[in-house]
Simulated scan of single mutants.
Amino acid sequence: MDARFVGITDLVEAPSVAVVVDVMRAFTVAAWVFAQGAEKIVLAESLDDALALKAHHPDRLALKDGPPAPGFDLVNSPGLLRSADLDGRTVVQKTTAGTVGALAVKEVPLVLCAGFVVAEATARLLRTRRGDSVTFVVTGDDGRAEEDLACAQYIAARATDAGTEAAGFLRRAAESSAAADLTTGVRRGAHPDDVELCLELDRFPFAMVAALEDSLMVLRPCAVPSPAGDDSSL
């Protein structure tokens, strides 16, 4: 597998596969949204678009970064989502980096959104795409976010070598500036358990695939081949 690691602004050509990584916290949150029963996530271009998408379908729930705000039902925190009942719901998500990265590659044939919580499922899905060039989009801090780069590199390594150990990659993420910001309360709309939840390796058994549906970028959970039938040699 030919893997490239780029920031959002460094995307110059559409690859055949893109893996958009936002560990702290957009795609950790997305995984929790699905775990709490949501059917799909609509990725919004802006906060105004998120509210408009909700207004057209009042049964949708809108989610954003930062503290609670009028019109928004959920905040971008896995710790605050653990008790939410989202069974069968559609969530409209707008975040600072993760959703921006996914929308930047919306024309790519296969777009996966990932964090450590779905790392192995994502790697297993990539193993089914033999020979593809994969671009990992490091969304945070203009492509320099250490937690996102560590996760991207871990998934890429697992996709080619199922024996790759996670400890070093998780340590890099735990020592990142994003983790420090969450721990010290710099980021609003957070829960004390957010860092721990973002670093919970392979909490969920599904990957997450984003695709255009009626001009909207929609994220859905995706079942992947079982480890027993997995051939990791590429």
Rank of each mutant, 00 (worst) to 15 (best):
T99M: 06
T99S: 04
T99P: 00
A102G: 14
A102Y: 05
L103W: 01
E107I: 04
V108W: 10
P109S: 02
P109L: 02
C113H: 00
C113I: 02
E120R: 15
L125S: 03
L125I: 01
L126N: 01
L126P: 02
R127A: 13
R129M: 14
G131W: 11
S133P: 07
V134C: 04
F136L: 13
F136A: 07
F136M: 08
V138S: 03
V138N: 12
T139V: 10
T139E: 08
G140P: 02
R144K: 09
D148E: 05
D148Y: 08
C151G: 01
Y154K: 01
I155K: 03
A157N: 01
R158W: 07
R158S: 01
A159W: 03
T160M: 00
E165C: 12
E165Y: 06
E165T: 14
A166C: 13
G168Q: 12
G168N: 14
G168I: 11
F169Y: 15
L170D: 06
R171I: 13
R171T: 15
R172D: 04
E175M: 07
A179W: 11
A179D: 09
A179N: 05
D181G: 12
T183P: 01
T183E: 10
V186I: 11
V186D: 05
R187T: 08
R187Q: 05
G189Y: 07
D194L: 07
E196G: 06
L197T: 03
C198N: 09
C198D: 05
L201P: 00
D202P: 06
D202S: 10
R203K: 09
F204M: 03
P205F: 09
P205L: 09
F206T: 12
F206W: 12
F206E: 11
M208A: 10
M208R: 04
A210S: 14
A210M: 10
A210V: 09
